[in-house]
Amino acid sequence: MAGGHMRYRHLGRSSSHRQALLRNLVTSLFTHESISTTYPKAKEAQRLAEKLITLGKKNTEASRRAALSIFYTPHDLLPKLFGEMRERYAARPGGYTRVLRIEPLKPDQAPSAILELVDGPKDMRFAMTARTIARLRGEGKEVDSLTQYNVDKVTRFRPNGEQALEEMVEKVNDLEIGDRTALEARWGGKI
């Protein structure tokens, strides 16, 4: 923004349009646990999503009303936010969502990202760490420092984190490493 400090990304939209967009994004995020969008949209939706989970953890009548006014499908998502999410993030002091950069998805090559709920069923970093461990074990190597750092991150607040990670390692170990010569989307392929 020209002149002055930018408090948030305007995303090239009017206030109402931006609010509607962010509400749509967080509604999708809480429905699907993980969404892929452009990086700036993901970072803005992350703010709103974290605030929603904070509302869920407060679990008061006022917070229920505030959450109700944000979701587009509140009757599906309010029980989830004030039930499952509240329990999942009870011990975690913030940082309930994660933004991971991925290869551009859009035809204009805009930087893209995955916005996901940490410790959810679609935790990409959790699965990727598990896959790294599976590969290292297959090669008979020790877990390196960066992977160990990621292991600590993904298991710290997850209930039975170590065990869940072992299960995921088994699961991704069965997953075949596909054709790496297939064209990526940015070169006209499907991946």
Partner: peptide, 21 residues
């Protein structure tokens, strides 16, 4: 780190992301 294929720094490997998704 998960498949050993070359990828862009600071971005997830698109092949692994697709397979995990």
């Amino acid at each position: 780190s998960a498949c050993g294929h070359i990828k862009r720094a600071h971005l997830l490997c698109p092949y692994c992301v697709k397979e995990i998704q």
